[in-house]
Simulated scan of single mutants.
Amino acid sequence: MGDTFAMDEIDHKIIELLSEDARMATSDIARMLSVSRATVSTRIDRLRDRGVIRRFTVELGENEDSGLIPALLLIRLKPGDSRPVVAKLKKIPGLRDICALNGTYDLAAEIVVGSLSALDDTLAKIRMFPDVAETNCSVRLRRFA
């Protein structure tokens, strides 16, 4: 599309509200922003069409009682294109928030699994990728923010 797209304050507020609760009803957003429900719906559609909002998701709570084990994985790759490794990582259950880094490691990923043995299996699978030179995994003990 050739037309220019600039986000305004309402767009930013919609994104902020949806970031806090992706399931928030458009009517609730409209009431909070003092605009019509149709305005919110149209703007969400436009934000999706422009790729600003890619997807709506559920974020699982990880606390001591959830039974889930969250970990941070750092990956150093062998020289070359990282896209094939990232594509493989995206297919592994429990991996999320894969990010490119600068510095010693090339990628970081959050892993959330149901057991330590599942974490070990996931790490073993990733370490077998031919383009992975090194990994460093730490289990997250507590979240402060």
Rank of each mutant, 00 (worst) to 15 (best):
Thr122Met: 08
Phe129Arg: 05
Pro70Asn: 04
Ser66Glu: 06
Glu9Ile: 11
Gly61Val: 12
Met7His: 07
Gly94Glu: 04
Leu119Arg: 00
Phe129Asn: 06
Glu134Lys: 11
Arg23Cys: 02
Ile15His: 04
Met7Val: 11
Leu107Tyr: 12
Ile14Ser: 08
Asp28Trp: 07
Glu16Gln: 12
Arg43Gln: 01
Asp28Gly: 08
Ile10Ser: 08
Ser115Pro: 05
Met7Ala: 12
Cys137Gly: 03
Ile53Lys: 07
Leu18Ser: 00
Glu16Trp: 08
Ile75Arg: 02
Met128Cys: 13
Leu77Ile: 13
Ala100Gln: 15
Lys13Ala: 15
Leu95Ile: 05
Leu18Gly: 00
Ser66Gln: 05
Gly80Trp: 14
Arg43Pro: 02
Asp106Gln: 01
Ser19Met: 15
Ala145Ser: 14
Thr39Gln: 07
Ser34Thr: 09
Arg83Trp: 04
Leu68Ala: 01
Thr26Leu: 02
Gly67Lys: 10
Ala38Met: 13
Gly2Ala: 09
Cys99Lys: 08
Leu18Gln: 00
Ala25Thr: 09
His12Phe: 13
Asp11Asn: 15
Arg31Lys: 02
Ile10Gly: 06
Asn102Thr: 15
Ser117His: 03
Val113Asp: 04
Glu9Arg: 10
Arg54Asn: 10
Ile10Met: 07
Ala38Trp: 08
Pro84Arg: 06
Glu134Gly: 03
Val86Asp: 05
